[in-house]
Design a protein around this nucleic acid. Structure first.
Lengths: 156, 156
DNA sequence: CTCGTTGCAAAGGATTTGCACAAGT
DNA sequence: ACTTGTGCAAATCCTTTGCAACGAG
């Protein structure tokens, strides 16, 4: 692949926001952001694994602690978001399009749905409690069609 | 009907469901269930602490591992539910009245709201994806009025 | 008595932190 | 050069597990 500048349009927003804060553009930061964009709903652990894979047996991948620190930074920069899908690790995704997650408690399947799903609820909360919902962090849990049908036939 | 043994109304559902499964009614089980009912949104850690308090310096409180095992059991019995409010430990509450939680990402304040808040969203998910939302596990995150106002005035 | 339960202690997995060294700008 | 960023290893936090002793039915 292109071996010129590892930058292009993707590095744009990152470099820009880092610079604005006097922070530095480093390999781990580019790598982690790229991994989050490529992988969907990836946990820090998975992101780290992916980077180790890409790095190969000799190349060096960012340390686990760096992955965590970088994810936190990228989130502060508004480039990624995380969601808690239940117990266990949070999942990260690129911040581009806001969307929310629906998780099947039975099979763990994750489905992304449009954020307007919660418009009605958000309006009610705003009106009644003055509470502003952050759609991006929301994960609705429940049972997907497949699991419900399976449960129905096995019933007990 | 009238020839029941003493025991109190509280022990009823618990004893009943345990018996139905050939399980035993023990002190830790009564204590943990009572603590979950009294405390709102308590983590396993907090529940354990509360039991230690109640037990006093000499009395013996259930071990931490027992608290975890018991909460898991009580949930299987349908007597308590847990919700993940974000990172960190899950919170438990008595299963009596279904309700959902709204958490302020800034100050951590938890507010309980009626489950019908999500009726519209639930109907859409059912219709479009065949997905059944479990309202009890849901936690909406966002910003409460107080924190938003505070942020607004500091924000310069 | 019998078998489910508990306490203890140790194991585990996930995330965070302290530091000295490496590296952007 | 001046700081920020990173790797490493140890420390934490939360939860789970193996076992022998304990106790409800």
């Amino acid at each position: 692949m292109g071996s010129h500048h590892v930058g292009g349009p993707v590095a744009g927003p990152l470099a820009e926001r880092l610079r604005a804060r006097g922070l530095r553009l480093t390999a781990p930061r580019r790598q982690v952001l790229a991994a989050v964009s490529e992988l969907e709903h990836a946990t820090p652990e998975v992101i780290g694994a992916r980077l180790r894979e890409e790095a190969g047996p000799d190349g060096a991948a960012p340390d686990t602690s760096t992955v965590y620190r970088t994810l936190e930074l990228l989130e502060r920069l508004g480039l990624v978001w995380h969601t808690h899908l239940g117990k266990g690790a949070p999942v990260y995704h690129a911040a581009e399009h806001p969307h929310l997650h629906v998780v099947c408690a039975s099979c763990g399947k994750i489905t992304s749905v449009q954020p307007d799903l919660l418009d009605t609820a958000a309006e009610r909360l705003a009106a009644e409690l003055g509470f502003t919902v952050d759609v991006r962090h929301v994960a609705l849990s429940g049972t997907c069609r497949a699991c419900r049908e399976r449960a129905g036939s096995e019933d007990q």
